[in-house]
């Protein structure tokens, strides 16, 4: 005997009906020109994020934590994670400019040079990792000073 599939809260059903009605009203207009391309983009961005980007950075993070853990320094993970994530975030947002893929249009439209973006991103990345290394070094020095010599 199968139980009947429950309906759930009627208020929630009403809410979703209203939401879908509005989404459909805008959606038919959104899909009017190139329905396949737009649908592909909407589903594609969600899939790319949930099934590619998120697993990739999760695996990378886990690898860093495990690797450092194997070396007995699991607590150093933050000093790699923070600069790497911030640098990756900047690359993700400004990828068209940093990669130069829109360089020709950018120069011709704005009269600005498209050349500096990669250099600036690399410099910011260097500063982030450098600052992280300095912080870690300071922390290690403080820990060494505090540790009594007998503890060796």
């Amino acid at each position: 005997m199968r139980r009947r599939f429950p309906v759930g809260s009627p208020l929630q059903l009403l809410l979703f009906c209203a939401s879908f009605a509005l989404a459909a009203y805008a959606g038919v207009r959104l899909l009017a020109d190139d329905w396949f391309g737009v649908a592909l983009w909407i589903v594609g961005t969600a899939v790319l994020h949930d099934l590619v980007l998120l697993p990739l950075y999760s695996v990378a993070d886990r690898a860093v934590v495990r690797g450092l853990g194997a070396a007995g320094h699991r607590e150093w993970a933050l000093y790699v994670r923070v600069p790497a994530a911030l640098s990756g975030l900047l690359l993700l947002v400004w990828f068209p400019l940093i990669s130069g893929m829109t360089a020709r249009r950018y120069r011709s439209a704005t009269g600005l040079s498209p050349d500096g973006f990669l250099t600036r991103w690399l410099l910011i990345t260097a500063v982030l990792f450098g600052a992280s290394a300095v912080l870690l070094a300071l922390r290690l020095r403080r820990a060494t000073k505090r540790r009594p010599p007998a503890a060796h």
Binding site: A23, L30, A32
Partner: peptide, 28 residues
């Protein structure tokens, strides 16, 4: 904003109608 017009159509209708689809789900 980076002049990378790879999306499927003109920015104005895509971003405007897309905003309403998103907002419908966001409000719920």
């Amino acid at each position: 904003i980076q002049l990378d017009y790879v999306f499927p159509g003109s920015f104005y209708p895509l971003h405007f109608y897309g905003a309403w689809v998103f907002f419908a789900a966001f409000a719920a």
